[in-house]
Design a protein around this nucleic acid. Structure first.
Lengths: 205, 205
DNA sequence: CCATATTGCTACGGTGGCGTAGCTTTCACA
DNA sequence: TGTGAAAGCTACGCCACCGTAGCAATATGG
């Protein structure tokens, strides 16, 4: 058995290869969870061998954090692009509702990406949790600001501002989760309509 | 070097050993996530050898589902015990608030247990997700019933009943999560007070 | 105090991922 | 067209976990 040499994979500049590998990693994750995300698997998936992967990522942890970093960036870009934060002739309530709308649509567009953020942590690699928490902290800050604004604009702070922020986030995430896990039953419109109503029932925010 | 024989672990009847092993498994999970939960580790952790573990669990999957089954049972018991569902002279809103109170206190009492349910899966073993979803489905049904009750009692269904159920659940889970991840900043009282206010702002439920 | 079931242990062979050393092919450019 | 750097590849040794076969200690009850 002359060990037949494998066909050379097409050559790629590092940056591009890196992206390709992360694509593979994301797919693996979506299919088989974190257990499926190994260096070997990433290599196989992209039709390439292990040393190639090690050329770009020192270890599994780097693949994971690299993946999350990239996806988080794209994810936020996806939302920010959809939400014209410039003109704010809208009330905080409408701003929030519009944000949720943009968010839910982004989720429906790239479920794999968002599954990563919405249905992840604990029991998953530590580095990963760290990263997610970082991103979440940023978002929380923004949302808290909005909540504050709402409370100030509409009267005395009858509600715990910080918790209101968390709640707004939780509502958005719930919508995203439902949009991913049961898209038939929960189309974006239904979700957004509901969130909008809730927002208007609250005394402010 | 005569290979010194290891000291015999105290003998235990199966049921008791089983419980001990699951305790070990839970601790491992809390410390190092799912990657840390291996047959070897479970054995080591309980000062016992692998075949002993295999005597009680055929494989990792069984350990996991066994663990989740036990914890889920204890968890629900913990809540049900704290919430006197018999007397319902209270309004649905108060019922809900009391439920959340009981829930948050249960969480604070056994964080490891609830972390398992609240900050879990995806990217974690499939069997596990299945189990969690089963439990969650049961709870969702209960909560939906409550939401329905609230909506009917307080006037026409201005709100999407099903989504209201999900929201109530999401609020409770958010409270639980915050109670676990930042207990200093979010003591039970603060959380419960907030949830109570929110409930009363909504037109019903 | 001995027989025997029960409980636990040692010791493997097997698999699969990790990470690296060193060789081979491509390809851009002279 | 030929050459050297860049990009890939093969092929290891290592380690951790899996799962099992067969032996050793310990209880119990006759």
């Amino acid at each position: 058995m002359s060990t037949t040499r494998r066909k050379y994979a097409p050559r790629l500049p590092p940056a591009q290869r890196r992206d390709q590998l992360l694509d593979g990693a994301l797919a693996l994750l979506a299919e088989g969870g974190f257990d499926a995300l190994t260096m070997e698997a990433v290599a196989r998936r992209s039709g390439v061998t292990k040393p190639v992967v090690y050329e770009l990522f020192a270890n599994r942890a780097e693949v994971i954090s690299g993946l999350l970093a990239r996806e988080a960036e794209r994810a936020t870009a996806q939302v920010l692009e959809a939400i014209p934060s410039g003109l704010d002739d809208r009330s905080p309530k409408d701003l929030y509702t519009d944000g949720v709308r943009a968010f839910v649509h982004a989720v429906v567009e790239s479920p794999d990406r968002w599954r990563l953020v919405l249905l992840p942590p604990e029991g998953t690699p530590v580095e990963f949790r760290r990263q997610v928490e970082l991103v979440r902290a940023q978002v929380t800050e923004q949302v808290n600001a909005l909540a504050d604004l709402g409370l100030k604009a509409m009267g005395g702070p009858e509600l715990d501002a910080e918790l209101l922020g968390h709640t707004m986030l939780a509502l958005a995430e719930m919508s995203g989760r439902l949009a991913i896990t049961d898209p038939e039953r929960f189309p974006p419109d239904r979700l957004v309509a509901f969130v909008g109503k809730i927002a208007h029932f609250l005394p402010n925010g």
